[in-house]
Amino acid sequence: MSLKDKLEELKASGLVDIQKADDQRQLNEIRVKLLGKKGPLTEVLRGMKDLSAEERPQVGEFANKIKSELTEAIDTQLQTLDQKSLQRRLAHESVDVTLPGRQNKVGTPHILNQVIDDLEDLFIGLGYEVIDGPEVETDHYNFEMMNIPKDHPARDMQDTFYITDELLMRTHTSPNQARSLEQHDFSKGPLKMISPGRVFRRDNDDATHSHQFNQIEGLVIDHHVTMADLKGTLEVVARHVFGAERELRLRPSYFPFTEPSIEVDISCFACGGKGCSVCKHTGWIEVLGAGMVHPNVLRSAGVDPVEFGGFAFGLGPDRFAMLKYGVNDIREFYQNDLRFLHQFQREVK
């Protein structure tokens, strides 16, 4: 057998061995066996000294070619084996992605505070300050300063939680109108404020009454603020809360601290104004009260009603939330049943 034939045979059997190898260790053994110092290839090459000067380079070249082919085959097989073992590992490591994850609890803001926060954000964007005021008010600010003198029917004992003759639980957030009017420096620009907070009425708690609820007062006073500005502002509010398609309807009403006074209806968001059970088949839903600030209110707070004027409004976050989310019992807001509260976890509404 010629040296060349030997080499051919060596290659053929070597390739078979390589293909059969199924792990790295076997391949290493094959590499040593075929290509190592004691391997057949080395041996063949050692026998080259017996060859003629013409044959030697040809055989040498051929032997080197066989060697590199075998080396390449081993490397390829090694990569194949790596791929296989990676696939096995990945298959082994796979998990059921449909099982629930490990969650940190995230709390839910109370829905009434979500409504209030949302409106605060809206008004801050419109340049309003947010004003806090005391929940225990004086008769003076709660009534007198709001043009509700003693013996006025609007301050029936029936409705007010009195503490003493002069102290009471505020029945509305309106006293903060008087408080901010007194404090505001009109030389620095207009007064634009909202005042959210708890208010109290002497009511028995039932599905539609709560002795504690929330209000947001709004007040804008400047040299020239019009009722048209009030209408435009309330349109912004109504469309922000109840949807861009809402129409507004203003109706005459009465509050001692505004003149003219209006009740504001929005076109029904459930039926679009055609009439349904939400709007009691009228197409309209009453959402808030408002008006142009009464000259007496300005005057008692030391603001000249000829020089200055503006509008005020009062809205009820409880009522807004009941309407918007179909809550039929106001007590649900204050019982704090977690099953009720958790419904409002979704903050994008």
Binding site: L126, G189, P190, K192, H224, T226, K231, G232, L250, P252
Partner: peptide
């Protein structure tokens, strides 16, 4: 009231915060 225009207060800018 339905004939009232709809506008927003103008005048000096205020900062809400």
């Amino acid at each position: 009231y339905d004939k009232l225009p709809s506008t927003l207060p103008t005048g000096v800018q205020t900062r809400g915060a």
